[in-house]
């Protein structure tokens, strides 16, 4: 089983603590969304896991081994840290070949990935002529070169067009379904909600949450019920009688806060209120995330301090 284990990680830059006693595990077979505002330490953590930066204290292992001890690591771990890292003067294909060569990955695999990431037609063009979306695809191709068990992507949807976003979503789902360990950082909530099974949330270098996404949302966003009726007076009366807090919207529908659809449905039925529409309103990841960050006072004071290493 190839999981990523981060144990008591701390990284200080001068006096600033970018990552603060962070511990979590990323398990295979699911997509783990890595959330947090800019400067929360997501990229720093990924670099520490890859052995690129030295931790001030703590350690990280992949499948029980430190990254630096891996033999031809691209076969085990693929990472996209920064789509701008490819040298602009090389062609996309040559860029991948230079990565592949050091890990004994044949050029055939390079061409396969260029095809898979939709870059085959521009493979022999210089990277500097690529759009941001094309560079992201090239970076993802680089991460998948060695058919790795563990994939770490830092903001992979950056600059992708709508087709690209759907493509990456399906790719991540497929990789997880194949039993791989997938860690994807993002600050786009709706995007993350579309592919993540599990969440690791950071704030100011500390772990704020490490839970399945559904649980994360349910724990933080109270359920609501959307209801539409032809008899608002009756509806209002019934809800008030049972102590429900309801809000009427301009288009005529009502939102009942902190209520479950089963309860409201039964209530309406027994009271004989004519119901035109009745639906449960699922909490969104965005709401849950904002709820979490609002409760972190530090965050509210510094919503997104710019951090150089996050660039």
């Amino acid at each position: 089983m190839t999981s990523i284990d981060v144990q008591d990680f701390t990284k200080e830059y001068g006096t600033r603590r970018a990552v603060d006693h962070l511990s979590f595990r990323v398990l295979p077979g699911r997509v783990t969304g890595f959330l947090g505002p800019n400067g929360a330490g997501k990229s720093t953590t990924m670099r520490l896991v890859l052995g690129l930066d030295r931790p001030t204290s703590g350690s990280a292992t992949i499948g029980g081994r430190a990254y630096a001890t891996l033999h031809e690591p691209l076969h085990q771990v693929g990472a996209l840290l920064d789509a701008q890292a490819a040298h602009g003067s090389r062609t996309g294909r040559d860029h991948l070949r230079t990565l592949a060569a050091g890990n004994r990955i044949p050029d055939r695999r390079v061409d396969e990935l260029l095809e898979e990431t939709g870059l085959a037609s521009v493979a022999r063009r210089r990277v500097r002529t690529y759009s941001l979306g094309m560079r992201q695809r090239l970076g993802i191709a680089g991460a998948l070169l060695g058919d790795p068990e563990v994939v770490m992507l830092d903001e992979p949807s950056n600059g992708l067009d709508p087709e690209g976003i759907i493509w990456i979503r399906e790719l991540l789902r497929r990789l997880a379904a194949e039993g791989r360990t997938i860690l994807v950082s993002s600050h786009l909530m709706n995007e993350t909600a579309s592919f993540a099974d599990h969440l690791v949330v950071l704030g100011r270098g500390r772990l704020l949450a490490d839970t399945p996404m559904r649980e994360f949302i349910h724990a933080r966003v109270r359920p609501r019920v959307r209801i539409r009726t032809s008899d608002p007076t009756a509806l209002k009366a019934v809800l008030a009688r049972h102590g429900h807090d309801a809000e009427q919207h301009e288009d005529g529908h009502w939102t009942v806060h902190h209520a479950r659809v089963d309860d409201i449905g039964r209530l309406m039925s027994s009271a004989g209120v004519p119901v035109l529409e009745l639906a449960a309103v699922e909490g969104t990841l965005e709401q849950a995330y904002l709820d979490l960050t609002a409760s972190e006072a530090e965050f509210a004071a510094h919503p997104s301090a710019t951090q150089p290493q996050e660039a």
Partner: peptide, 10 residues
């Protein structure tokens, strides 16, 4: 670029 290199050859 160096990160990319060291990720491939630690």
């Amino acid at each position: 670029g160096l990160r990319l290199t060291f990720a491939a050859v630690p």
